[in-house]
Amino acid sequence: MSESKIAPSIEGWYTCGESPHLIGTRCKRCSSYFFPKQEVFCRNPGCRSTEFDEIELSRKGKIWSYTEHFYAPPEPYIFSEPFEPYIIAAVELEEEKMIILGQMAQGVLSQDLTTGLEVELVVEKLYEQDGTDYTVWKWKPAEN
């Protein structure tokens, strides 16, 4: 088997390596967090800032809710046949006080999840295309 290349499915949204983070921005004036990155104009209606710092968001959070999908979604989702069910979780970050969606890592079972469970961010293959593995951020029950 030839070694496949690895590439992010979207550039600049998360770091890789052992402890990956989502990349967001923080308003230089009012300190509000944004993900995906807000770089043009602050969405806090009481702030008119146009300057932001790029920051790494907390890589741990708690499950707000979750759901397992048993049907293949339409394009532009890309998947290899046969279709495998996948779980999407909504995860609440304590520090940033925001909820971010993501698939659960492969191998995680729905029955092992519950609202409030602590999870951490991982980067994993989402799909393979033309010999390249495209990655995305996912959530995985946190190791204590």
Partner: peptide, 20 residues
């Protein structure tokens, strides 16, 4: 992007609310 990056369909949201 929600479809491309995670296969997030409309029923995803309904299911998240229901589970909650």
């Amino acid at each position: 992007l929600r479809f491309r990056l995670m296969g997030c369909t409309n029923p995803t949201y309904f299911a998240l609310y229901a589970r909650r």
